[in-house]
């Protein structure tokens, strides 16, 4: 069968904020889970300025390595229809978080099982086609990391600020002073 041509991407624009983010979208880990970790950082543009209108999505295996995910990220209040989010028992593996006015985001999750990274998808006003990257929680012996030169490789490895807090910044464009984040293509 002939391959169908794909529908082109278009920018998420500036006004997704009342449509895509949802309450609890940054919380993959159940509330109060003792094993929860925080992954946070800033998104910067090519001038080094924070990007206040980016939207980040994260996808990861459960701690047991399962990649099947679970529905229920957008669970509804049956009376009002309002999104109330996950019930905390199933592991959805999915986070969606907009950057704030300072270009900052934070998610709370559980460490992924079987791989050392979270998959990340970046959307923003001004970005005509989303970008994929990975937030590695440890500097691992991994086929992707191994293939990169050290300066590039470092952009994918979150900085452990404490045992449970990891900083992962996204730099959309090389500005001379800071290395651009490695972005990925899956051919």
């Amino acid at each position: 069968m002939a391959e169908l041509a794909p529908t082109p991407s278009q920018t998420v624009g500036p006004f997704y904020g009342y449509a895509l983010p949802f309450p609890g979208g940054a919380d993959i880990a159940p509330a109060g889970h003792p094993g929860a970790i925080t992954v946070h950082g800033h998104v910067y543009d090519g001038a080094g300025a924070p990007v206040p209108d980016a939207l980040l999505e994260f996808w990861q295996p459960a701690p047991d390595g399962s990649r099947t995910g679970a529905p229920g990220s957008l669970r509804r209040d049956p009376v009002s229809g309002a999104v109330i989010g996950r019930h905390g028992l199933d592991f959805t593996g999915f986070a969606r978080v907009p950057t704030d006015a300072d270009g900052h985001y934070a998610i709370r999750t559980l460490p992924p099982g079987g791989v050392p990274y979270l998959a990340v998808c970046v959307f923003a006003r001004g970005l005509l086609h989303h970008l994929f990257t990975r937030a590695y929680l440890t500097d691992a012996d991994d086929p992707l990391l191994t293939a990169l030169e050290p300066r590039r490789r470092a952009t994918l490895i979150a900085i452990a600020e404490t045992e449970r807090v990891h900083r992962f910044d996204v730099r959309l464009q090389d500005n001379g002073a800071h290395e651009e984040t490695v972005f990925l293509d899956f051919p």
């Binding site: 300025a49 990007v51 001004g126």
Partner: peptide, 13 residues
Amino acid sequence: SELRHPKHALVEV
């Protein structure tokens, strides 16, 4: 798009 596009080629996985 001027300051919000990467200059490096994407890395194939």
